[in-house]
Every structure is written in structure tokens, then in C-alpha cells.
Design a protein around this nucleic acid. Sequence first.
DNA 1: CCTGAGAAGTGGTCTATGCCACTTTCTACC
DNA 2: GGTAGAAAGTGGCATAGACCACTTCTCAGG
Lengths: 253, 253
Amino acid sequence: MAEAILKRERVRDYLLELIETHPAGAPIPAERVLCQQLSVSRPTIRSAVEELVNTGLLVRQHGRGTFVARAKITQEMVSDTGSMSLPQAGGTWSSRVLEHARIPAGARVGRRLHLSPAADIHYIARLRLVDGEPMALEYLHVPAQVAPSLTLHDMESGDFYERLREHGVHVSEAVQSIEPTVVNDSEASLLGVPVLAPALLFERLTTDAEGRQVEYVHSIYRGDRYRIVSRLTLGASPRNTVDVQARVSGDPF
Amino acid sequence: MAEAILKRERVRDYLLELIETHPAGAPIPAERVLCQQLSVSRPTIRSAVEELVNTGLLVRQHGRGTFVARAKITQEMVSDTGSMSLPQAGGTWSSRVLEHARIPAGARVGRRLHLSPAADIHYIARLRLVDGEPMALEYLHVPAQVAPSLTLHDMESGDFYERLREHGVHVSEAVQSIEPTVVNDSEASLLGVPVLAPALLFERLTTDAEGRQVEYVHSIYRGDRYRIVSRLTLGASPRNTVDVQARVSGDPF
DNA sequence: CCTGAGAAGTGGTCTATGCCACTTTCTACC
DNA sequence: GGTAGAAAGTGGCATAGACCACTTCTCAGG
């Protein structure tokens, strides 16, 4: 499999170099200049620049130029397309399984899933990382009765709801709550933040087409790395509606 | 701000029509066909399609075609009030004005409102209560230049955006971020919670139809009394919902 | 000295076109 | 009948060029 060296990627890498070596706010060469320097056409340049603008590394200003963004670490906002999961920010997500078992639900989880505390559930605890850095702790619970043959591999899969569908469970809706909290000792050490650091507590209860509770997720997200951003528009529609607009564009300084 | 009818937007709207009228998984016309139908060039088509792919409404498959995405995840924020305000929980809301002045913006607020730090703003700090019990602290900033004759009464009014409209300011959109934090000494005493208690920090930057920043709001909500609840449904159309997304930020304001 | 008009440079949009890579379908050969 | 291969249709990448909109700077004219 030879390297399919795309010009667009070559340009992007070149720009990333520039971004790293230039201070925030510094201008990068004009698009027409880059064309000559890299021997590619302007649309190709624009495509590469656009990608970096979307990820927040560059800021374009009409008539002035293109500049290195103020906060270089800002990542792109991603709308999760297929699977109904927690909102995921840009970067490379990975996860490490901390614990995995088939255990009784217990009182708290049992109440949420409308189960007897003695009923078995599939349980998995994961540390979720972005670019190798801890981002969140996630505790997933699925009643054993709902999907008896669920495997660890199923629960680790990126498209978990697809796997559930293969087990005959058709997810239909979920109620999610978000509240602020602070991390305790064990959470702090797993996430690599100080004890009592601010964090977001997500809870999600998912229901299938037959009205059964099929999943309860409890997550702790690092407050210093995670933030919820929403864009509200007042338009023709009667409510505060917004069509999926992915980006909150680059913050001019 | 006149309509600068961009072809790209025309194509996008046309595609949105198709997406709404076609079932999930249905193919949309080939790019070269769309070119003829809409009398635009293929790069323009591709640009519009790309936007919708990024927002998760379409799926492209090399060699096969472009299809309406299978399931869109939408997240509806429970917000009872019609106007574009912070989500408000049940109960009787009231507020107590803590401070009110016309002062220079200062560096932090100035940067968000795109003003010189020396530019005047209307400033009001309020303690918001629910059923007589403190719920949140709210700090509202409006550039004096935008609405020179704004009064305290205007800013205290329930329908603040309606008052702004009477001053010739037509609010059009806002970007809001939510992150976890803990309260400091003064916040703690005002809210009646212990120091370091978990809280939610809301920030909202509002823009008017002319693209001016017209309002910056900074609020601290008690974590023990306030929680965001959202209902996620699978397969619904994104209309009349608020899509919440997230981003990683290394430089929180 | 100040001011305003224009030049020059920037990003923003769009066109017309070519070729490549992948998938599906149909056909011709065995 | 089965199968390999060509053909057709799709999206993926890239080019060269044109014109527009906005910003900044310069310089002539007051």
C-alpha cells in the first residue's frame, strides 16, 4: 500500500509546521503565495486552510489575511453522526477498560434501570482518552436480561447501538442529565487531575422501542478539557432552533 | 444586511429539502446530475454536500453514491420560556440587583464583545432566585454604543430582547458555553453555599442581525439546585431542537 | 498638516475541465 | 452455468483562471 500522497495533506502538514513555528496571531503567507511555494492550485490551498480553520488552528479575515489562532490547542467540534453517544469533541478518542463483569445491579443502578437490585447486568468501566490524555470515566450498565449474550467486544465497539440492534434491541430514545461536580480521590488519580477539580457528571438512561430501559451510563468528564458549546439562532422558526451548524468559528482576538 | 444569495447556500437548501422528503438511507442524485438540475458547477455542489456530510445529514460512499444519513441524533434542551434565554427550571423566579453601572468594559469583557477595554458598557449584576432561594449569579454586559439609552428597567425586564428591539437592536444568534466550576468566596456567600461547591458556568455571547456583539452574559448556577436535562431521540429531524456539541479547549477564556 | 481617492493585496465565490479510484452491472468467454 | 473482465456510473482529487468584497497603505490634493 504505497503512500497516496495527497497534495492537500502535504499542504496541511506544511501549514501545521508554520503554525508550530509561528507565534499566535502571526500571519501565514497569502494563498496565492502558497500556491507558488508548494506548486499547487489555489483551491487545493484553500481546502487545506479550510480544514485548519475548522479545527480552530487558523483564523481567516477577509481582506486582511490568515493568521495563527490564539489558542492553538483548540480542537474541532464534532457532531456525532451515527451512534447516539455522548457528545464527542475533536481529537483521537481511545479507551482503556478498567473493569468488566456480569454482576448484580445493586440498589442505585437497579432503580434507574427499573430492575431488582439482585438482577444481573453487564457492567463495564472505561477510561476514555483523547489524544492519549484522560478525558472521562464512563460506567456502562446493560441489563443481562435485555441482551444475554452481550460480549465485552460488543460493549467496546464504537457503534454500540448497532451491536445492540444485532441482539434485537432497538434503541429509541434517551434522557440525559448534566450537572457539575468535583472529582473524588479515585477519579482524580484516574483522570490525572487534582482532587476536587471541577467536572461534569453525565447520566443517561436509554430506552428501546418496546419501552424497556436498556442502558444506564454514568460519566465523569474533566472540566478543564471538556465544555459544552451550543449555538442558538433566532430565525424564521418559532422556537430557538438551530440547524446542525458544526462550528463556532474562530474567535478573532 | 442584504441577502447575498450564494449558490452554495441555494444548493444546500435544496439538499435539505431532499433530506426531509426522503427516508433515511435513500440516495440523492449524483453530483453530476445535481450540477445540471441546479445549473452550478460540480465543485460548488461538492462544497454544499460536504457541509451536510460534516453535519451528519448525508453520507458519501465512494463509487456508490450519496445517501441520507441513517439516524440523526438530536438533543432537545428543556427550556420552557419562548425567548432566547438560559434554560429555566420550574418554580417562581425573581431577582435582586446587586450592582448596576455604566463602566468601561475592561480587558476580559472587552475582548468578548470586540470592544476596546475603555469603551463604555451597561453592566448589571443580579442574584437570581427561585422560590426565594438563591439559584444563580448573573452578570450582564451590553455595549453602550449599541443601545445608548438603555435603562436599568430595560435590563431588568423579563423580555430583555424585546426591549433591545425597541432600541433598534435585532438579536439574531448566540453562542453559549457551559462548563463546570466551583464557587469562590464571594460567590459562595451570595449563593448561600459552601466555598468550592460545584457550579455551572454559563457564558453567552449574543450577536445581532448586523453581526455586532450586543450582549455578553456570564452566570454561575448552583450545582446542587440546577441540572440540565435533555431528551435525545433517534431518527428525528433536527428542526425545533437544539443541537449540543462540544469542543476541547486548552484555553478556557 | 490633514484628508480622501485610488492602488494593491487579501480572502470569498464560482466556473469548466480532466483524470483517478472504487463499486456495480452486464457481457462475453470458457 | 460459471466466471473473469470490461463498461458504466459514482465520488475523490486537482488544475487554471476569473471576478467580487474587503482591508490597508500610499500619495496627491486641499
